[in-house]
């Protein structure tokens, strides 16, 4: 199978891995995270969607850092900050979810309707 794929590449049918591959993957992760945020009823499920979106952004940053020499440093620094900030945000979000659970004894986001008009 390996010789077959090598032949396909050398004939130009499969392009070598470039920036676009990573960008499409990051877009896919972003969309999965968005669907997760919209469709989950569990508050921690929504948080997992947020983590997916942040990871997609980090992959984007590092892909640009790799394929564009101008952003070699910035891409990694931004991705590092994204990772650290995402961890901090997850901690706060979980604290809020735990607080919510103390009050309502459930984590169903449909129960968060105190401010509903």
């Amino acid at each position: 199978m390996i010789p077959l794929l090598a032949e396909a590449t050398s004939s130009g049918w499969i392009t070598p891995i470039g920036l676009h591959h990573y960008l499409f993957l990051a877009a896919f992760l972003l969309v999965c995270g968005l669907v997760c945020m919209m469709a989950k009823r569990n508050a921690i499920g929504v948080l997992m969607g947020v983590e997916l979106v942040l990871n997609a952004a980090a992959i984007n940053f590092v892909a640009f850092a790799r394929y564009n020499r101008t952003f070699e440093l910035e891409g990694q620094i931004f991705a590092l900050f994204v990772i650290v900030m995402a961890a901090a945000e997850a901690a706060v979000a979980l604290a809020i979810v735990l607080s919510f659970y103390h009050q309502h004894h459930t984590v169903d986001v449909d129960n968060a309707r105190e401010l509903k008009g």
Binding site: I2, P3, L5, A6, E7, T9, S10
Partner: peptide, 11 residues
Amino acid sequence: NGYSPQAAAVA
């Protein structure tokens, strides 16, 4: 053993 250079690198 008959692999092309690319396939040899992968293998």
